[in-house]
Design a protein around this nucleic acid. Structure first.
Lengths: 204, 204
DNA sequence: CTCATAAGGTACGCTCCGTACCCTAAACTC
DNA sequence: GAGTTTAGGGTACGGAGCGTACCTTATGAG
């Protein structure tokens, strides 16, 4: 009773309309209470429907969670352009840090854990959250630095491009959940990323 | 009924003996079936006791899981000494990869997810699995390379020392669960770690 | 108008966590 | 060695939550 979504008339939604209502309800649940509280009953109630309609579309709770997260996080990644390699790197790292330290980041971590045994769901999540798109951003960023003469030519390597994000993720894994302080970000850039990208040519 | 541990006589275990039996049972459950199957009832049955005795010692299932894991994984970390920086780095990375790709690594990942909301448990786990001890190993390894003239003096930096393990963890996060191939390890060493450690002096 | 399809409603089985209660064996005290 | 405290054993239960079954009822297509 008392569904949160508008179910004004006695009309009965079908197909895409109902699917969208379910996804909205699940995403809202994720946003406000997290994955642990996104129970099937709550989602069904919030969407003004019942679990049957959900299970006809998603085989399990984790699948709905991933779908709702993808529906929720449609963030497009803008590659910063500050003019310097250091500025670009810091901007990209700070953006990632903001995302990961937000409640949305906690949801993402929970989902990654919940989908650990489902390769299909994992790929979906990786596409959405810091997957290939982020690596591509770092590569273009390095490429621009190479063009400016700020970095060695061989630095535009995928493995090199993945270093800052890996270190940031490491901070989240090592520390508990709070935000990573900005000093850590600058240290990653100044002590690892810049030396690696600049000095890399000498022994290639 | 039919406890797996020897409960031959009518003797009733107490204190440390019982605690040890519970830990053994939980560790065995972790080893053979994983954390998901380590239910409190199963552990109690396998230890030949009941849940009461468990909950008097550990407040929740996650706490028991962490304790059992620490009991199970008493691996001491030996710092390799192959004579070259590259050999040492590869050896350390391969050892970590072996651990993480084993069933024990899967248990560790499950536990990390389960203990995500308990800072105390997280610190316990980090001590056990690739925490400060691993960073220390990498630091000594770099220190020896510096002494041999294989690395720049400023390379013995904690942040630098954490790079290879962070990249390895990144591989596990990005890919699903299988083992990380050896080519990735050599690429981490050759494309990132060695250039970083060797060439780092030029702009310090 | 008829009818297949899909949504709604509801109840249920199952697993598992964590707790409560009472009984009894072991250890400690004197 | 008898009494007392402590802690383990047995069992049952409440509650949450996932996933399923079954039937009823509205919707839209032919």
């Amino acid at each position: 009773m008392a569904p949160d979504q508008q179910r004004g008339g006695a009309t009965r939604r079908r197909g895409a309309a109902l699917e969208d209502a379910i996804l909205r309800a699940a995403a809202e649940e994720l946003r406000t209470a997290g994955y642990a509280s996104m129970t099937m009953d709550r989602v069904a109630q919030r969407a003004g429907t019942n679990k049957n309609a959900i299970y006809r579309r998603w085989p399990a709770r984790a699948a709905l969670g991933v779908a709702a997260y993808c529906h929720l996080a449609d963030a497009e990644l803008r590659v910063p352009d500050t003019g310097t390699l250091r500025g670009d790197a810091l901007a990209l790292l700070r953006a990632a840090n903001a995302t990961w330290s937000s409640p949305q980041g906690a949801v993402l971590r929970d989902l990654l854990a919940a989908a650990a045994d489902d390769p299909g769901l994992l790929t979906l999540l990786r596409e959405q959250a810091g997957g290939s798109s982020t690596d591509a951003a770092w590569l273009t960023l390095i490429g621009r630095a190479v063009a400016r003469g700020e970095a060695a030519a061989g630095a535009a390597h995928p493995r090199v491009a993945s270093v800052p994000m890996a270190l940031l993720r490491g901070e989240y894994a090592v520390r508990g959940l709070p935000e990573v302080p900005d000093e850590v970000l600058t240290e990653i850039v100044d002590e690892v990323f810049l030396p690696l990208v600049r000095g890399r040519a000498i022994d290639v």
